[in-house]
Design a protein around this nucleic acid. Structure first.
Lengths: 145, 145
DNA sequence: ATTTTTGCAAATCATTTGCATCAGC
DNA sequence: GCTGATGCAAATGATTTGCAAAAAT
């Protein structure tokens, strides 16, 4: 049988931290937030619980180029990440689920879902990167070929 | 000024390996392939060159849940990964670039592009996972909220 | 001749894990 | 009291990096 979850003090704090955060925090950011409330909590506990919460569908993980982040909102929606600072924001574009069945039929894969990630330079980073003119902080996307 | 690239024996081999492979190999798989031709090549060289090739737009990197993979085809196209074995295949769905401008206008981000990753269980893994009935090899997607 | 690149090994970074103890239920 | 969870520290895995020697232009 599947293991039964216990409502530990730590797990509650971790879930709250993810839900209260508008910023799609990384695991380490969650650790830092929770550590303000509990000086003794360990990174291992944070990682373990984030994984369990994702597994249970309570939160979702977002795998961006800049690393993994967590989102307290499990409703399907796209994300936009800044290629320079790594910030992640929500995009109000409803995912087209009909395409999943199409791909399912085409490929023979089962239980298909999909996610979309937008990448670009956020306003703050646009300003930062103009003046020096030297090397861009991160690789600009190529579009040739 | 940007560094000028040199056409080293190693770089050529690495590019060939990625292009010849239909399987969207990981960095380590590329290393193993290339090592068959050059027993002395190092992982560092493979990683460095893969990064340079991506930077120059010669190949593309695909960040899947199962790890980073490389694709010799830089034409925009979606990918489908198996949530169990991690295999990556191409999906013949043309990305809708008009949506990028829309998001650009909505968010103020610059130079937006996007990519879509489909996830599901490949045919081989479907067969593997039926019989035992115990625990699935990897977390099945939850869809409730 | 100059400057990039290589091979190697050590370093880094994020994440996972073993284990004895602790705490939900 | 049983079993899952915690904290700690060590382990892992993927990727990056410093450096002297080698190769490309």
């Amino acid at each position: 049988m599947a293991a039964q979850r216990r409502n530990t003090r730590q797990r509650k704090m971790i879930l709250e931290a993810v839900r209260d955060s508008r910023s799609h925090p990384t695991a380490d950011e969650v650790y830092l937030m929770v550590r303000k409330r509990d000086r003794k909590i360990s990174r291992g506990t944070v990682y373990r619980n984030l994984n369990l919460l994702v597994e249970d569908g309570v939160i979702q993980i977002i795998k961006t180029s800049g690393g993994n982040r967590f989102d307290g909102c499990t409703l399907p929606h796209a994300h936009l990440t800044c290629t320079s600072c790594g910030a992640v924001t929500d995009v109000g574009v409803a995912p087209d689920t009909s395409i999943d069945e199409f791909v399912e039929g085409r490929t023979g894969y089962a239980g298909i879902s999909h996610y979309t990630i937008f990448e670009g330079l956020c306003r703050a980073c646009q300003l930062d990167e103009e003046p020096p003119q030297d090397q861009p902080r991160q690789t600009p996307k190529r579009r040739d070929m």
